[in-house]
Nucleic acid binder design. Structure first.
Lengths: 254, 254
DNA sequence: ATTGACCTTGCCGTTACGTTAATGTGTAAA
DNA sequence: TTTACACATTAACGTAACGGCAAGGTCAAT
C-alpha cells in the first residue's frame, strides 16, 4: 500500500504538517519522492509512524523517540513491552489523581480534611515515580530487601484493617437488606441505604466503581445461584430485592 | 499559612518560574506583595493552584483553565466532578491504547494480523471522544434515546456473554483446584494453572489486575469463613492450597 | 483551458515554560 | 560589620512541536 501525505495523515488522525515536520527532523522519511516532489509512504513507514505515535502519546519528546526508532539495535517488541509498562504506570498515576479528586470532593462536602501538602499528593507522586524509574535499581541494590519488606508489611497491615471493614460492611449489607425487605419497596430510604452499603462493600474489591458494573453485579446476584443462595439464606427473594434497589440506586431503573 | 514562591513551588512540585508565569498571565496572583516586592501566597491561592494543576494535568491549556477558574459563576464542586469525569474518560482512552499495544505485540508474535487502519484505532478513538465531548449534547438532543438504548443493549449483551464466561471460569477454577490439590504441591504446573485461571476469573470483576490485590484476595479466602466454605466444600484445605498457589503465582512466596 | 483538490517549500506565530543575566534582600556566621 | 549565600525580583531570549499562512507547482475531470 502506498500513501500520499494526506492519505496517511487522515488514516493516522494527524495533520499533513506533522508529517512534513517529521520528515524535516528526520524521524519519519517517506519511502520515496515521486517525479513531482510528492512524498510517498509505504507499509514500513506506516508501522514506524504507529510506533512514533505510541511514544508521543506517552509524552515522550520527538528527540527521544527518534533515538529509539532509529537505533540500529532497535528491538520493536522490547520497545513495545516497555511502552506497555509505561502506559500501565501512567494509568496508576491517573488512578492516584482520581483518588485525589475524590478526596477533594469529600473535603468540599466537609467529610474529611486535607492538609496543603496532601492537596498535591497526586502530582508529586508523578515526580516520585520519575525518581523511582531513574534511581529505583540503585536504591534497591543499596537497601536490598528492606524496602520490599516494608512495603509488604504495609500491604499486610492494610489488609488487616480492610478485612475488618469488609466483614463489618458485609454484615451491615445483610442486616439492612433484611430490614429493607420488610418495607417491600426497593426505592425506600432503607433499601437505598442498603444499595449504598453494597457499593461501599464492592469498592473494597474493585479498583474503580462504576454504576454499570454495580448494576451488572446486582443482576448477577439473581442469575447466579451461588450468590442468590448467600443473600436468600434467611429471606427468600432478598437477592432480587437487592438487585431492584441497586438498579434504582444506579439510575438504571426507576 | 503563608508561602513564598519557592515554598509553594516545592509543595506543589512545580518551578518558581511557573508561579511567576501564572502571575504574569493572571491565572494565579499572589495574595499580596510584601515590602520587598516578594510574592506571598495564602491558603486560597493554594486551593486555586491545586485546581489549576488538576486541569493542566488533563492537558487543558492555561487560557481555558483561566476561563474556568476566574469565571464569576465558577462552581468548584461542579468543576471537580467534571474533572473527575474527564479523568475517567482519559483512563478509558489509556485502556484503549493499552489494548492496542497488546494487539500489536500479538501481531508481532504472528498471532493475529492488523490492517493499516486498525493500527491507529487507539489514537482515532481520542478524536471521536473529543467530538463526542463537543457535539455529544446536540447529537443526543437530535437522536434522542436511540443512541442510549443502543449503548445499553451493548452493555446487556456484553453482560450476557461475560456471565457465561464467568460461570465457565469459576467452574474451571474449582475443577483444576481439586485436581491440583491431589498433587499436594502448590508450585506444581497444575496448581499454577489454577492460579492463572483464578486470575482470569478476577479480571472480570476488576478493572485492573494487580499481583498484590490477587495475593490479598487469596489470603482472604483463608481468613474469611464464607470464602473458605466455598472452596473447601468438597475438599477441606483447598482454600489454603489455592492461597499458596496464588502466593507463588504472584511471586509473593517461593 | 479551466477548475479545484491536491502537493511543495518557506517562514512567522504560539504555548508554557527553561534559562540566563543583572540586581536586590534576609540572615547567620566570622 | 562585613561576608557569604540562599533567596527574591524583572527582563529577555530560547525551545518544542507543530498551526497557519503565502506563493507556487501538479493532477484529474470537465
Amino acid at each position: 500500500m502506498e500513501y500520499t501525505v494526506q492519505k496517511l495523515a487522515q488514516m493516522a488522525g494527524i495533520s499533513t504538517r506533522t508529517l512534513r515536520y517529521y520528515d524535516e527532523i528526520g524521524i519519519l522519511k517517506p519511502a520515496r519522492i515521486n517525479s513531482s516532489g510528492y512524498r510517498i509512504y509505504g507499509g514500513k513507514e506506516v508501522n514506524l509512524l504507529q510506533q512514533i505515535l505510541f511514544y508521543r502519546e506517552l509524552g515522550m519528546n520527538l528527540d527521544s523517540i527518534k533515538e529509539i526508532v532509529t537505533s540500529p539495535t532497535f528491538d520493536g517488541a522490547k520497545a513495545l513491552r516497555e511502552h506497555r509498562e509505561s502506559l500501565l504506570e501512567k494509568r496508576r498515576q491517573l488512578d492516584l489523581l482520581i483518588s485525589n479528586v475524590d478526596k477533594t470532593i469529600a473535603t468540599k462536602e466537609g467529610r474529611i480534611t486535607m492538609t496543603d501538602q496532601e492537596k498535591f499528593e497526586g502530582f508529586k507522586q508523578k515526580l516520585m515515580d520519575d525518581n523511582e524509574k531513574k534511581y529505583g535499581k540503585e536504591i534497591r541494590e543499596k537497601y536490598g530487601e528492606d524496602a520490599i519488606n516494608k512495603s509488604n508489611n504495609k500491604i499486610k497491615n492494610m489488609t488487616q484493617e480492610q478485612h475488618e471493614e469488609i466483614t463489618k460492611l458485609s454484615n451491615d449489607v445483610l442486616e439492612t437488606l433484611y430490614a429493607a425487605f420488610q418495607t417491600g419497596d426497593p426505592a425506600s430510604v432503607l433499601a437505598q441505604k442498603t444499595a449504598d452499603l453494597h457499593r461501599q462493600f464492592l469498592s473494597f474489591y474493585w479498583d474503580h466503581y462504576s454504576k454499570e458494573a454495580h448494576a451488572t453485579i446486582a443482576q448477577m446476584y439473581v442469575d447466579d445461584e451461588r450468590f442468590t443462595a448467600y443473600y436468600d439464606v434467611k429471606q427468600p427473594g432478598a437477592a432480587a430485592f437487592l438487585r431492584d434497589a441497586v438498579l434504582i440506586y444506579t439510575g438504571m431503573k426507576k
